[in-house]
Design a protein around this nucleic acid. Structure first.
Lengths: 108, 108
DNA sequence: ATGGAATATTCCTGTCAAGGCATATTTGGA
DNA sequence: TCCAAATATGCCTTGACAGGAATATTCCAT
Protein backbone atom coordinates (compact mmCIF):
# COMPACT_ATOMS: atom_id res chain seq x y z
CA UNK A 1 0.00 0.00 0.00
CA UNK A 2 2.84 2.30 0.89
CA UNK A 3 4.66 1.46 -2.30
CA UNK A 4 1.58 2.17 -4.34
CA UNK A 5 1.05 5.60 -2.86
CA UNK A 6 4.72 6.44 -3.30
CA UNK A 7 4.50 5.54 -6.96
CA UNK A 8 1.42 7.69 -7.47
CA UNK A 9 2.93 10.60 -5.56
CA UNK A 10 5.06 11.59 -8.51
CA UNK A 11 3.07 13.88 -10.85
CA UNK A 12 4.37 12.37 -14.06
CA UNK A 13 3.71 8.85 -12.86
CA UNK A 14 0.20 9.73 -11.83
CA UNK A 15 -0.28 11.22 -15.24
CA UNK A 16 1.02 8.07 -16.87
CA UNK A 17 -1.39 5.92 -14.91
CA UNK A 18 -4.27 8.11 -15.97
CA UNK A 19 -3.08 7.88 -19.53
CA UNK A 20 -3.00 4.09 -19.38
CA UNK A 21 -6.54 4.11 -18.11
CA UNK A 22 -7.71 4.28 -21.72
CA UNK A 23 -5.67 1.31 -22.84
CA UNK A 24 -2.15 -0.10 -23.21
CA UNK A 25 0.65 2.01 -24.66
CA UNK A 26 4.28 1.64 -25.61
CA UNK A 27 7.08 3.58 -23.98
CA UNK A 28 7.54 5.80 -26.97
CA UNK A 29 3.87 6.68 -27.15
CA UNK A 30 3.79 7.65 -23.51
CA UNK A 31 6.89 9.76 -23.91
CA UNK A 32 5.42 11.53 -26.87
CA UNK A 33 2.01 12.21 -25.36
CA UNK A 34 3.41 13.52 -22.11
CA UNK A 35 6.32 15.38 -23.64
CA UNK A 36 8.87 13.47 -21.61
CA UNK A 37 12.19 11.97 -22.54
CA UNK A 38 12.37 8.27 -23.22
CA UNK A 39 14.73 7.39 -20.35
CA UNK A 40 12.54 9.44 -18.04
CA UNK A 41 9.51 7.39 -19.01
CA UNK A 42 11.36 4.10 -18.75
CA UNK A 43 12.48 4.89 -15.24
CA UNK A 44 9.02 5.94 -14.13
CA UNK A 45 7.53 2.82 -15.64
CA UNK A 46 10.02 0.79 -13.68
CA UNK A 47 8.78 2.32 -10.46
CA UNK A 48 5.17 1.75 -11.45
CA UNK A 49 6.00 -1.80 -12.37
CA UNK A 50 7.71 -2.55 -9.09
CA UNK A 51 4.73 -1.08 -7.30
CA UNK A 52 2.56 -3.55 -9.17
CA UNK A 53 0.62 -0.83 -10.93
CA UNK A 54 1.50 -1.83 -14.48
CA UNK A 55 2.32 -4.92 -16.47
CA UNK A 56 4.66 -5.25 -19.43
CA UNK A 57 4.33 -7.26 -22.56
CA UNK A 58 7.27 -7.31 -24.94
CA UNK A 59 6.34 -7.09 -28.58
CA UNK A 60 9.34 -7.29 -30.83
CA UNK A 61 11.27 -4.13 -30.34
CA UNK A 62 8.73 -2.47 -28.11
CA UNK A 63 7.25 -2.97 -24.73
CA UNK A 64 3.58 -2.49 -24.20
CA UNK A 65 2.56 -1.30 -20.75
CA UNK A 66 -0.90 -1.71 -19.30
CA UNK A 67 -2.52 -1.09 -15.95
CA UNK A 68 -2.77 -3.95 -13.53
CA UNK A 69 -6.35 -3.94 -12.25
CA UNK A 70 -5.38 -5.83 -9.11
CA UNK A 71 -3.35 -2.90 -7.81
CA UNK A 72 -6.31 -0.57 -8.15
CA UNK A 73 -8.46 -3.08 -6.37
CA UNK A 74 -5.94 -3.01 -3.55
CA UNK A 75 -6.49 0.71 -3.17
CA UNK A 76 -10.21 0.13 -3.32
CA UNK A 77 -10.00 -2.40 -0.52
CA UNK A 78 -7.86 -0.12 1.58
CA UNK A 79 -10.39 2.63 1.13
CA UNK A 80 -13.06 0.20 2.19
CA UNK A 81 -11.90 0.27 5.79
CA UNK A 82 -12.61 4.00 5.84
CA UNK A 83 -15.94 3.88 4.14
CA UNK A 84 -18.03 4.05 7.29
CA UNK A 85 -16.43 7.43 7.89
CA UNK A 86 -18.68 8.96 5.29
CA UNK A 87 -21.42 6.38 5.00
CA UNK A 88 -22.45 6.60 8.61
CA UNK A 89 -22.16 9.80 10.55
CA UNK A 90 -19.02 8.49 12.13
CA UNK A 91 -17.47 11.48 13.73
CA UNK A 92 -16.96 10.65 17.38
CA UNK A 93 -15.71 14.14 17.92
CA UNK A 94 -18.28 14.96 20.58
CA UNK A 95 -17.75 11.68 22.32
CA UNK A 96 -14.04 12.24 22.27
CA UNK A 97 -14.32 15.70 23.74
CA UNK A 98 -16.15 14.26 26.67
CA UNK A 99 -13.35 11.79 27.16
CA UNK A 100 -10.92 14.69 27.18
CA UNK A 101 -13.07 16.49 29.69
CA UNK A 102 -13.02 13.45 31.92
CA UNK A 103 -9.24 13.34 31.79
CA UNK A 104 -9.15 17.02 32.68
CA UNK A 105 -11.04 16.60 35.90
CA UNK A 106 -9.53 13.26 36.71
CA UNK A 107 -6.01 12.86 35.26
CA UNK A 108 -4.20 9.56 35.74
CA UNK B 1 -5.16 14.28 -6.06
CA UNK B 2 -1.43 14.54 -6.39
CA UNK B 3 -1.16 16.24 -3.02
CA UNK B 4 -3.16 13.50 -1.40
CA UNK B 5 -1.00 10.72 -2.75
CA UNK B 6 2.13 12.58 -1.76
CA UNK B 7 0.85 12.88 1.76
CA UNK B 8 0.04 9.19 1.96
CA UNK B 9 3.36 8.20 0.44
CA UNK B 10 5.16 8.78 3.69
CA UNK B 11 4.98 5.61 5.84
CA UNK B 12 4.45 7.42 9.13
CA UNK B 13 1.74 9.60 7.68
CA UNK B 14 -0.04 6.61 6.22
CA UNK B 15 0.17 5.00 9.62
CA UNK B 16 -1.28 8.10 11.24
CA UNK B 17 -4.20 8.13 8.85
CA UNK B 18 -4.93 4.50 9.62
CA UNK B 19 -4.70 5.30 13.29
CA UNK B 20 -7.21 8.12 12.96
CA UNK B 21 -9.57 5.75 11.22
CA UNK B 22 -10.80 4.63 14.61
CA UNK B 23 -11.50 8.14 15.85
CA UNK B 24 -9.97 11.54 16.64
CA UNK B 25 -6.73 11.80 18.58
CA UNK B 26 -4.49 14.49 20.01
CA UNK B 27 -0.92 15.07 18.87
CA UNK B 28 0.50 13.56 22.01
CA UNK B 29 -1.55 10.43 21.72
CA UNK B 30 -0.47 9.88 18.14
CA UNK B 31 3.16 10.43 19.07
CA UNK B 32 2.89 7.96 21.90
CA UNK B 33 1.12 5.24 19.96
CA UNK B 34 3.46 5.42 17.00
CA UNK B 35 6.61 5.95 18.99
CA UNK B 36 7.42 9.20 17.25
CA UNK B 37 8.68 12.51 18.56
CA UNK B 38 6.19 15.29 19.07
CA UNK B 39 7.68 17.70 16.51
CA UNK B 40 7.79 14.86 14.03
CA UNK B 41 4.09 14.22 14.48
CA UNK B 42 3.20 17.91 14.33
CA UNK B 43 5.01 18.32 11.04
CA UNK B 44 3.42 15.26 9.52
CA UNK B 45 0.00 16.43 10.66
CA UNK B 46 0.67 19.72 8.97
CA UNK B 47 1.26 17.95 5.67
CA UNK B 48 -1.86 15.84 6.12
CA UNK B 49 -3.81 18.95 6.97
CA UNK B 50 -2.62 20.86 3.92
CA UNK B 51 -3.53 17.86 1.80
CA UNK B 52 -7.02 18.08 3.25
CA UNK B 53 -6.82 14.68 4.85
CA UNK B 54 -7.35 15.80 8.43
CA UNK B 55 -9.13 18.50 10.36
CA UNK B 56 -8.07 20.14 13.60
CA UNK B 57 -10.10 21.20 16.54
CA UNK B 58 -8.34 23.11 19.32
CA UNK B 59 -9.37 22.11 22.82
CA UNK B 60 -7.63 24.13 25.46
CA UNK B 61 -4.01 23.15 25.37
CA UNK B 62 -4.42 20.36 22.91
CA UNK B 63 -5.38 19.91 19.32
CA UNK B 64 -7.62 17.10 18.31
CA UNK B 65 -7.08 15.76 14.81
CA UNK B 66 -9.65 13.80 12.87
CA UNK B 67 -9.94 12.43 9.37
CA UNK B 68 -11.73 14.48 6.78
CA UNK B 69 -14.10 12.09 4.99
CA UNK B 70 -14.26 14.32 1.95
CA UNK B 71 -10.63 13.63 1.09
CA UNK B 72 -11.22 9.91 1.13
CA UNK B 73 -14.22 10.38 -1.05
CA UNK B 74 -11.98 12.20 -3.49
CA UNK B 75 -9.79 9.13 -3.75
CA UNK B 76 -12.89 7.01 -4.15
CA UNK B 77 -14.06 9.16 -7.03
CA UNK B 78 -10.68 9.06 -8.67
CA UNK B 79 -10.68 5.30 -8.44
CA UNK B 80 -14.11 5.30 -10.00
CA UNK B 81 -12.74 6.23 -13.39
CA UNK B 82 -10.69 3.05 -13.32
CA UNK B 83 -13.39 0.75 -12.11
CA UNK B 84 -14.34 -0.60 -15.49
CA UNK B 85 -10.82 -1.96 -15.67
CA UNK B 86 -11.75 -4.75 -13.34
CA UNK B 87 -15.49 -4.76 -13.55
CA UNK B 88 -15.61 -5.39 -17.26
CA UNK B 89 -12.93 -7.43 -18.95
CA UNK B 90 -11.37 -4.25 -20.19
CA UNK B 91 -8.01 -5.28 -21.38
CA UNK B 92 -7.66 -4.10 -24.96
CA UNK B 93 -4.30 -5.79 -25.13
CA UNK B 94 -5.24 -7.98 -28.07
CA UNK B 95 -6.81 -5.12 -29.92
CA UNK B 96 -3.76 -3.01 -29.30
CA UNK B 97 -1.42 -5.67 -30.59
CA UNK B 98 -3.29 -5.67 -33.84
CA UNK B 99 -2.86 -1.93 -34.08
CA UNK B 100 0.84 -2.42 -33.59
CA UNK B 101 0.86 -5.08 -36.26
CA UNK B 102 -0.85 -2.69 -38.64
CA UNK B 103 1.81 -0.08 -38.00
CA UNK B 104 4.46 -2.66 -38.66
CA UNK B 105 3.26 -3.44 -42.12
CA UNK B 106 2.28 0.10 -42.88
CA UNK B 107 4.38 2.69 -41.00
CA UNK B 108 3.65 6.37 -41.44
C1' DA C 1 26.54 -10.07 -40.11
C1' DT C 2 25.39 -5.02 -39.89
C1' DG C 3 22.70 -1.10 -38.94
C1' DG C 4 19.09 1.20 -36.88
C1' DA C 5 15.00 1.62 -33.94
C1' DA C 6 13.00 1.05 -29.31
C1' DT C 7 13.94 0.56 -24.65
C1' DA C 8 16.66 -0.03 -20.39
C1' DT C 9 20.49 1.21 -17.50
C1' DT C 10 24.27 3.87 -15.55
C1' DC C 11 26.46 7.89 -13.70
C1' DC C 12 26.23 12.40 -12.18
C1' DT C 13 24.16 16.45 -10.15
C1' DG C 14 20.79 19.31 -7.92
C1' DT C 15 16.79 19.53 -5.21
C1' DC C 16 13.65 18.51 -1.68
C1' DA C 17 11.88 16.51 2.28
C1' DA C 18 12.32 13.92 6.78
C1' DG C 19 14.48 13.87 11.41
C1' DG C 20 16.72 15.86 15.38
C1' DC C 21 17.27 19.56 18.31
C1' DA C 22 16.27 23.83 20.17
C1' DT C 23 12.94 27.28 20.77
C1' DA C 24 8.62 29.92 20.32
C1' DT C 25 3.65 29.91 21.41
C1' DT C 26 -0.51 29.04 23.66
C1' DT C 27 -3.19 27.67 27.56
C1' DG C 28 -4.59 26.39 32.17
C1' DG C 29 -3.45 26.18 37.00
C1' DA C 30 -1.13 27.49 41.42
C1' DT D 1 2.00 36.59 37.77
C1' DC D 2 4.73 32.52 37.00
C1' DC D 3 5.22 27.77 35.73
C1' DA D 4 4.38 23.68 33.35
C1' DA D 5 2.12 21.04 29.74
C1' DA D 6 0.94 20.61 24.85
C1' DT D 7 1.90 21.93 20.38
C1' DA D 8 4.04 24.43 16.52
C1' DT D 9 7.99 26.33 14.19
C1' DG D 10 12.79 27.22 12.65
C1' DC D 11 17.40 25.69 11.55
C1' DC D 12 20.50 22.31 10.06
C1' DT D 13 22.08 17.99 8.23
C1' DT D 14 21.56 13.97 5.60
C1' DG D 15 19.50 10.76 2.44
C1' DA D 16 16.55 9.77 -1.40
C1' DC D 17 14.90 10.72 -5.74
C1' DA D 18 14.08 13.05 -10.33
C1' DG D 19 16.21 14.69 -14.53
C1' DG D 20 19.87 14.85 -18.17
C1' DA D 21 23.28 12.84 -21.06
C1' DA D 22 25.62 9.00 -22.49
C1' DT D 23 25.72 4.18 -23.14
C1' DA D 24 24.22 -0.68 -23.10
C1' DT D 25 20.79 -3.98 -24.79
C1' DT D 26 17.47 -6.19 -27.60
C1' DC D 27 15.24 -6.98 -31.70
C1' DC D 28 14.05 -6.67 -36.62
C1' DA D 29 15.16 -5.84 -41.47
C1' DT D 30 18.35 -5.93 -45.08
Amino acid sequence: MNTIFSALAEPHRLHMVELLRDGPLTVGEIAQRLGLSQPQVSKHLRVLSEAGLVDVQPIANRRVYKLRPQSLQDIENWLGSFRRLWETQFDRMEAYLQVLQAKESKPD
